[in-house]
């Protein structure tokens, strides 16, 4: 039976919403039960270990960086790999035969006023410098390769407001990104020959924090460039959809 009158349609939609909210309420009840049991599960063993040994073992004052680039470097490698695969996927999906040109909204003077363009010119070098600062100081202060790479990518995107018809070669960007990823893998594997263990700091455990931070800075810079190039390639692929 097909209900065509508008009132019965409204009734059905109200019933559907009530059922949906009831299901979500049940989910909330389940979440709440899990939260009540949390006190028994919660412990601070990992936290205590990291706060006591992480700085001496990895030479990083930022414990998050010490986990990302030393204890769980395997995770970070695959995270960077997933970014590379996603960039390749976006570019593969977005290929088309129509002649490519940048989207029009960047050139439209009514939507991007001159004031915005002027301030973009002023802010662009500051954002770039701040991104590099966050990348290089990733082991001393909050930040690191992923966050700084995102800031550098945002600075590069602002460049498109200044010069709307800027031409970018996506294939070159992705090729450079692939070589940087291979360099990250090689640097991560190099610890097998110096320490006898994969995916950890290159310098031996006894060396000073200064020596260990060389490895951290180099890996942070490589990851930062890789993330910045990946996000730049994704943005350019979206920009080329203008037709």
């Amino acid at each position: 039976m097909i209900l065509k009158s508008s009132s019965s349609r409204i009734v059905i939609s109200v019933i559907k919403h009530i059922v949906l909210i009831g299901m979500l309420g049940f989910l909330f009840y389940v979440f709440f039960g899990a939260y009540e049991n949390l006190e028994a599960l919660y412990n601070t063993f990992g936290k205590d270990y990291f706060s006591r040994y992480a700085e001496a073992e990895t030479g990083s004052k930022n414990l998050v960086t010490s986990i990302l680039l030393d204890y769980r470097l395997f995770d970070s490698l695959f995270e960077a790999g997933i970014l590379l695969i996603a960039v390749s996927g976006v570019i593969w999906i977005s290929r088309h035969e129509i002649e490519e040109k940048n989207a029009q909204f960047m050139i439209d003077k009514f939507k991007t006023p001159d004031l915005f363009v002027t301030f973009s010119r002023l802010v662009y070098p500051l954002m770039l410098a701040f991104g590099f600062y966050v990348i290089i100081n990733g082991h001393l202060s909050p930040g690191g390769g992923f966050q700084g790479g995102a800031i550098v990518a945002t600075a590069i995107l602002i460049l498109y407001y200044i010069d709307a018809e800027k031409d970018t070669n996506i294939n070159l960007i992705v090729t450079v990104e692939k070589y940087i990823y291979i360099a990250i893998l090689l640097l991560a594997t190099a610890s097998y020959f110096t320490r006898g263990a994969f995916f950890t700091n290159v310098f031996p455990l006894e060396s000073s924090a200064d020596a260990k931070s060389i490895y951290l800075v180099v890996l942070n810079v490589l990851i930062g460039f890789k993330v910045a190039l990946g996000l730049w390639a994704i943005f350019t692929a979206f920009l080329k959809e203008g037709r």
Binding site: K47, F50, I67, E79, L83, F146
Partner: peptide, 16 residues
Amino acid sequence: IADPLPQALMITTIVI
């Protein structure tokens, strides 16, 4: 201190 492990995992989540 706050536990650094969830923060490190969440960087992965944000990028992915």
